[in-house]
Design a protein around this nucleic acid. Structure first.
Length: 418
RNA sequence: GGGUGCGUCGCAUAGUGGCAAUUGCUCCAGACUGUAAAUCUGGCGGCCGGACGGCCUUCGAAGGUUCGAGUCCUUCCGCACCCA
């Protein structure tokens, strides 16, 4: 059976550091939605026992965004206290598809797709968690081996009523939408992971509550001690709506510094404090509440609060130097409206139309679109606005190089061949 | 297996036999500003290198009826719901 893979090597006698009451309090409240069972977990933390903290990640997309990072930072906090992080890479469950965040049925993801997503995953997670100290497990290791009989035994842990009590299943039922059996099995599989790795605690997003509960139920079903559950608060996207790739309001932790900085600057004012709390684990609560108070009193403008936030977040993932560079670049382009320091470069043709340049620079997908942009006054070349898209220019008209700008933020430099 | 309904430009929607085709969101641009926010305005199939305009390609696929078809008919594919 799958559990055998998890020897107790790491479950040694080593004790974790004895945390203060304040540390525990912050651990269990900051960015946290729910703690189950609170007293049990508090006890465990105070006992000095080294806990096995489970966290599952399904590689359903190529990137980890700052919403998912909240759980990772929480794991890091546990890791810093000496507990063992057990990361479960859901290469198996990803194929089944977590129905948690979906209102509609979820399609199968192919193995190839998962492999592709997986390739950069650990590197991303490693930005937050010390992977050398963590256990990493792929749940196909035990889930792929379950026979139909074993699966049936596993399924015995839940009644149909219990599974269907879940909110999004019930909603879909009421709307007479399709729910496949496979989707109902998902929580069981994820729960079985907890049995396989003998989790003491599981951390996940608030949307995972049902799945995490399933872990408890299934551990009990298999006669194991039940894990405690910690759910982290959900983070809204930049525009205040649910964070979703298709809305384009997501900040990925792999976004280049300048992008990350800029995206955060577009954050809605009313969720600034939430972002500080959830995305800046390195700032103390006192510091954050100080900042927010100052802002509320009108002594710190929301823009400046965001600039600080953006800088903090970029330096969290890329270091201070990169963060400062991103800030300088942002000020340069958007506040001083200058050209960025770096931009793609192309060779300048001998004689050309402005439309041609836009095509070379990839600023328009068709000539019609390029013309449209010119007509809208979005294009400037060599510092001058282009008024007529028929404009042609020859080499002699420009110096060594000239900058083509389209819109506020797209630039390219055209350089004469030497 | 029987029945009903549906497939429209990223997503979601409208569509009477005469439309490059409605509206919302996303998106792009402009103005404004404290930002790439909010708000307002404009745009959002392609080609003809101005404009008026012309031409081409689109409404699941293939045929057909018609001067003309997203709109009618046939077949096929896909999806959903109901009954079994």
């Amino acid at each position: 059976m799958g559990m055998r893979y998890w020897t107790r090597m790491n479950k040694a006698k080593k004790k974790s550091a004895m945390p203060s009451k304040e540390t525990i309090a912050e651990l269990l409240t900051r960015g946290i939605e729910d703690v189950i069972v609170r007293e049990h977990l508090e006890h465990a933390l105070q006992s000095g026992k080294r806990l096995r903290i489970k966290h599952g990640i399904d590689p359903t997309g190529p990137n980890i965004h700052i919403g998912r990072a909240i759980s990772l930072w929480k794991l890091k906090a546990f890791q810093d206290l000496g507990h063992t992080i057990v990361l479960i890479i859901g290469d198996f469950t990803a194929q089944i598809g977590d129905p948690s965040d979906k209102l509609a049925k979820r399609p199968f993801i192919t193995e190839a797709q998962i492999k592709k997503n997986l390739s950069g995953y650990l590197a991303q997670i490693g930005k937050i968690i010390d992977l050398k100290k963590a256990e990493i497990a792929y749940n196909s290791k035990w889930l792929a081996k379950l026979t139909l009989l074993e699966t049936a035994k596993l399924a015995e842990s839940f009644s149909v009523q219990q599974i269907l009590a879940r909110r999004n299943f019930r909603d879909r039922l009421e709307r007479q939408e399709d729910i496949s059996l496979r989707e109902l099995l998902y929580p069981l599989m994820q729960g079985y992971d907890s049995v396989a790795i003998e989790a003491d605690v599981e951390i996940g997003g608030a949307d995972q509550l049902f799945n995490l509960h399933a872990g408890r139920a299934i551990q009990q079903h298999y006669g194991k001690p039940q894990q405690d559950i910690l759910t982290t608060q959900m983070l809204e996207g930049l525009d205040g709506r649910k964070m979703s790739t298709s809305w384009g309001n997501v900040v990925n932790i792999t976004d280049p510094p300048a992008d990350m900085y800029g995206k955060i600057m577009s954050l809605h004012d009313d969720i600034i404090s939430k972002y500080y709390l959830l995305c800046c684990p390195h700032l103390s609560l006192a510091e954050i509440s100080g900042l927010i108070d100052t802002m509320k009193q009108g002594n710190l403008s929301p823009r400046d609060a965001k600039m600080r936030l953006a800088k903090e977040m970029v330096s969290l993932y890329y270091g201070t130097a990169k963060a400062e560079a991103a800030e300088a670049e942002f000020a340069r382009i958007f506040q001083k409206k200058e050209a960025p320091s770096e931009m793609p470069e192309y060779a300048l043709p001998k004689s050309f139309g402005i439309i041609d340049l836009m095509e070379i620079g990839g600023f328009a997908e068709s000539k019609t679109e390029a013309k449209r942009l010119v007509e809208q006054g979005a294009v400037s070349f060599d510092g001058k606005e282009v008024k007529d898209w028929r404009m042609t220019i020859s080499e002699a008209d420009v110096g060594a190089s000239a900058i083509l700008q389209v819109g506020k933020r797209r630039f390219a430099r055209f350089r004469k061949p030497a």
